[in-house]
Design a protein around this nucleic acid. Structure first.
Lengths: 340, 340
DNA sequence: TTGTAAGCGTTATCAC
DNA sequence: GTGATAACGCTTACAA
């Protein structure tokens, strides 16, 4: 039960391995007759070339790696879908790792990817590394080759990326609440150790400042982009009393936690509390509820990132390119934040 | 800018490549001194061994492939999470492909995987192939090596698998509706070209038969496990009038489509229509709604499948093993199908 | 404890 | 058009 190799095919078809290789890769000239002989030999023996063996001389793997922090977050798997559609069309295979926001797994994934000699990487780091770790990551990235960052930037990495206008988006969200007449507004913060967390917080603050609205310390709920943290912090804030009339949540998972806590407390959106979130909440449409949110085109982000990567793979010398996508607030209901 | 190889390390450390290899794989004896010399050479040069080159002589890739039909379906990414936790602990890397239920992509994925010489495969086929295609798939699977099927069986493949008791589960669902007093019950069918679709339909029918309830043709809504199909069919049925007092949906996506259509028609669950679905609906808890459903332990399924695979990889000669997991109906609310 | 050298399954460069 | 054959980067007897 030994592996069937190109030599088996060659001898069975009565040719040299070079000719078989030509047929396999559709390169160079092969007469129709011998081609057919070779093809049927392949068919009969059920031969499938070894990717590893092919990689060795060619230094091509045909694989693009994708490292994301959370598979369970709709934001990311939509990105994957978008990226996959582009990359597949380009004949690339996808090597996918989910790091669950764990730094160790992030590093392990990167190391595995280096070993694999992938031809490109779409990467959303699990965390914002400190200066020391960052140089390490930067080294890893240069070693890997073409890289496109998605959503989370790495300071001074010099690599391409597709990002969102977090500050502007959060600003729009807060502005919408203010325009609806709210004067006492709270925020469920994201992970402030991440730039996107800080930017969203900044945008939120700017809107309040421009409207000369105060932001009280206890209306800033600490979160980390997860449902649990938001849920707990919201419950705590509810217990404290004098609840804001409206809230902004820094991402979809935070929104989940917030809304669950609020609902358990018997309050309704938007009658009792106004609400808007960064990224939409899925699935509630089946009960006729739709929450206001900032909507990003996730599939588009994935596609854009994949295109950037393909172009970078084609011309490694190109200057660095960054795309920053802005997005629009989507209010549900004409009046304010009424779940339709 | 040539690739750094084991020879570079060897010469820099003043040793042979074999010794470097021993250090890399922690195999055989190496004196502490030379080990340190080698390790620092690796460090200084930033050497990362090539997976392809290593695979060639060892015939080991350290990769397990995972082929699933839909990334966007919570059922599957929970399975992935479960499987990943087990496989990572075993030091395996994951090569993931989503086929979006497209047969061509399924075949392409399988072919890519054969080329990669992965050490194992967790596989949910995109479709139920006809006899002719099936023998082809079977050949591919034997060529790939250790395989564990998840959720969808392949007739006569002889490979291990983890399945659910679809007939029994659907029966329980229908039974629950009947016990709640419903006499006019409809079904949103799944894809009947898939065994799991037929089994769920069969279980549903059995429950009705045992209760001597009739099943009218127009109460059998054709579906294909997708939200769209269910949505359209439900709308059509609503227009026809004499709507059943309760419905069973064959999977989570179908449930989505059904519930959306029903809600748009201004009907409420369970006051206007009783409902239960195979697999739960996510995310509605934030508005305090929970639908009755059959609950499966998806992470557990993923873990079980991964364990089966690891054991199969360890002992290829073992007899075929199939796990059929049964699951319990989860009613929301003590009385019947009341959204809490 | 360490080094030499023969593979592993391809591709690609030559001659023919 | 086609066939030897030398890489590709690593592991692993086998010697030393």
């Amino acid at each position: 039960m030994d592996e069937i190799t190109i030599r088996d095919i060659a001898s069975r078809a009565g040719v040299g391995t070079a000719t078989v290789s030509r047929v396999l890769n559709k390169s160079g000239y092969v007469s129709a007759k011998t081609r057919i002989r070779i093809e049927s030999a392949i068919e009969e023996l059920g031969y499938v070339p070894s990717a590893a063996a092919r990689t060795l001389p060619t230094k091509k793997t045909g694989v693009v790696a994708l490292v994301i922090p959370e598979l369970g977050n709709p934001f990311f798997y939509k990105i994957i879908t978008g990226a996959a559609s582009v990359l597949e069309r380009a004949g690339m295979h996808l090597f996918l790792s989910s790091t669950d926001n764990v730094v160790e797994r992030d590093k392990a994934a990167l190391y595995a990817i280096r070993q694999l000699r992938v031809e490109g990487l779409l990467y959303t780091p699990a965390a914002e590394y400190n200066e020391r770790a960052r140089t390490e990551i930067r080294k890893a990235l240069t070693a890997i080759g073409p890289v496109v960052l998605i959503d989370r930037e790495i300071e001074g990495s010099g690599v391409d990326g597709v990002y969102s206008d977090n500050e502007g988006g959060a600003y729009l969200c807060a502005k919408a609440l203010i325009d609806a007449g709210h004067r006492h507004i709270g925020i469920v913060n994201g992970d402030l150790s991440l730039k996107i967390g800080r930017e969203r917080f900044a945008g939120f603050q700017r809107a309040l400042r421009e409207a000369s609205l105060p932001l009280r310390k206890d209306d800033i709920l600490p979160g980390n982009f997860s449902e649990c943290a938001a849920y707990g912090a919201t419950r705590a804030r509810l217990a404290a009393g004098d609840f804001p009339t409206a809230f902004f949540a820094s991402n979809n998972l935070s929104a989940h936690g917030f809304l669950r806590a609020v609902h358990e407390a018997g309050m309704r959106i938007p009658q009792d509390v106004g609400f808007i979130g960064f990224d939409p909440i899925e699935g509630t449409d089946i009960v006729g509820v739709r929450f206001s949110s900032l909507e990003r085109d996730e599939q588009g982000i994935g596609r854009d990132a994949a295109c950037l990567l393909l172009e970078r793979m084609a011309s490694p010398q190109m200057a660095q390119r960054r795309m920053v996508l802005s997005s629009a607030v989507h209010l549900t209901g004409s009046e304010q934040f009424f779940p339709r």
